[in-house]
Design a protein around this nucleic acid. Sequence first.
RNA 1: GGAGCUGUAGCUCAGAGGUAGAGCAUUCGCUUCACAUGCGAAGGGUCACAGGUUCAAAUCCUGUCAGCUCCACCA
Length: 731
Amino acid sequence: MSNVSYSMDKIYSHKKIEDIIYSEWEKRGYFKPEINPAGRPYSIILPPPNANGNLHFGHAMFTIEDILIRYHRMKGFAALWLPGTDHAGFETQFVFEKHLANEGKSRFDYDRETLYQMIWDFVQKNREGMESQLRKLGFSLDWSRMKFTLDPDIISIVYKTFKKMYDTGLVYRAKRLVNYCTYDGTSFSDLEVVMKDTAGILYEISYSIKGGGEIIVATSRPETMYGDAAVMVHPEDLRYKNLIDKSVLIPLTDREIPIVADEFVDKEFGTGAVKVTPLHNFDDWEVGQRHELSGIQVIGFDGKMQNTGVVDGLFTKEAREKTIELLEEKGFLRGKKGYDTTRRTCYKCRNVLEPLPLEQWFIKVKPLAEKAIDAVKKGKIKITPRNFESVYYQWLENLRDWNISRQIVWGIRIPAWFCEKCSNWTITEGKTPEKCSKCDSKSLRQDPDTFDTWFSSGQWPFATLLSQSSSNSKFKIQNSKLESSSDFEKFYPTSVMETAYDILKSWVTRMVMFGIYLTGDVPFRQVLFHGIVNDPYGKKMSKSKGNVVNPLELIDRYGADSVRFALIYGNATGNDQSLSYTKLEGARKFTNKLWNIARFINMKQETLNSKSEIRNNLTIEQLKNETINKLDKEWVGKIGELVPEITRYLDSYQFNLAAERLYEFIWHEFADKYIENVKGRIDKDSFLVLSSLFLVQLKLLHPFMPFVTEEINEQLSLEKKMLIISDWPES
RNA sequence: GGAGCUGUAGCUCAGAGGUAGAGCAUUCGCUUCACAUGCGAAGGGUCACAGGUUCAAAUCCUGUCAGCUCCACCA
């Protein structure tokens, strides 16, 4: 052995080659769809990672998208994978405020413009890191089409959407109870609320009836009684029937309110009588609407009590204690029971959300949701795995109007101006209006709020394609359809939307609704869901648990190919998985196996070549005709069957099966059996079969393990083109 | 209170109407000139449980149990 010198290293070293190959692909423009000018369009929009931090393991699952893109590129499609990042409004501002807090500052120390600029700078720093991480994973994204949700052209599209929805009556402004976080200072949509079971107390409080007597009311939030609008009983409740329409006095303040009847009341619960506080409770708000009652807002947006005359200035929790103390002192408190209830809490800071009345912009979702449901029912959009269809339907069927106003700075400011004179709202496509659209007054004031992040990211598929400027025109290809048509015309609807199932509701449904509304067509033909990557013990990775693994560390240790392969292998599409070090190790050994097959071929190549010129690259069809040796012929046939098998798996999104089959075949069939067999009898003819068949397998494997396959092809000079743009094998 | 997913070898998980699979682990044997990140072999499973459909069920249906996840405005 020692007397043979190999031109290839004994061990495959990913560190030496991955970055080099990636920049070579990119430099040559291979990530652009224009590389296949005559090809049919195939497009995937990358779900834009938040611009506020590092990639997590979920993002590494986008490997699936890279596999699809590389596969279609090799099949000759004009394959576009469009990258982008999301400003992630509240999420980012929250992270940034934590940084401020570390410096002893808060958002209140800056004016709007300064704060926005500071977050902008903060985000720009993080964006670069995130982009380089996507490159490290080998993702063949067309960086020339990179988009950010706060790019001016994207913002302009978002403005137009808002105006159109306003003009057609789908957007309206209303004072409603919203989920308001008094710590973060913003409201949230229903989707962003986390329900938390908490142990509470049910208090029974006596309200005295005007003209004599009392009625006992059960409540878990006595501090809101100062804002009561009524006491409510069931109309059929014999205990209280004769009290309906009488008045009672709120304890401690003696404000007079009516007793009303509503079938909403559960006679069996508590005392059968409840207080109605429309401005601080969602149910009571509904009741208030029915009975035209409003009560008083006694909790301010700062989380402190107001307008009570008793506990003003106290936080709600203190106010509750104080109120109970006073009620007890004055003899109004009649009972206390342990009572478990669910509280709405902020998904970020975990504090209790207050239902507070606030004027907000809402989207009338029903007409949009109906069309979105229809699109899937009629098969215009397919969802894989299929069981997520029911989640999709269930969500859209029960949707309430969507509050899109956020009281934060970091985001797209709503293009709505309020007229101080006539209270009319003037909506524009972004430009500051000179005067009120109704009364021509010039005293206008812009809504300080910004859009919910999902309002803009819901428009992402068409916004990214519509906003592609002429920057790509320098990449000119003659006779290309691309030259004459825009990205939108060519690539919309996109082929596949591949994303984690946990944003089915917040993102996928919104994209479908906006897509149909604004373009008349669905935003994508196929939705593909992948699962969550948990830590090695099956626990969800989270910063607070400290079990987050950075994909970059693993890429450094095992190589990008191994990380990609380990995520795909042995994991059925859509299922969660736990990070597995043995799987990573196994994948790395597999890359090494490939490398050593290559070394063997390389060695034979060099020995044979020294005698005469050899051929090494025939198609399966050619091999079938030219191969004479019976055993070689058999193996040509086997590979001939492998090709359609892998192709079928890819077409049906069974990536794990494709990966498992390739692993099994290459290692335990081709290497263990064929190479062992051919070893002793290698000549020019059998070498031709050997190297050609290996090349076919490298191509089949390329979408999964792009780096090592590319490098091997380079070393062996089997295929003249780089594998990334080579033709998908046929058999 | 609803909905979904999962339950297969010691571990992690694929698979799927027709004799149970992989990786890791275990045991035995190999310095064979591509690879010890390797090669050859071996052991190991009532496919959660109970019914049903079928010539045939681990696979399809129903129910039960266990775990996970998501959704839900009752005071």
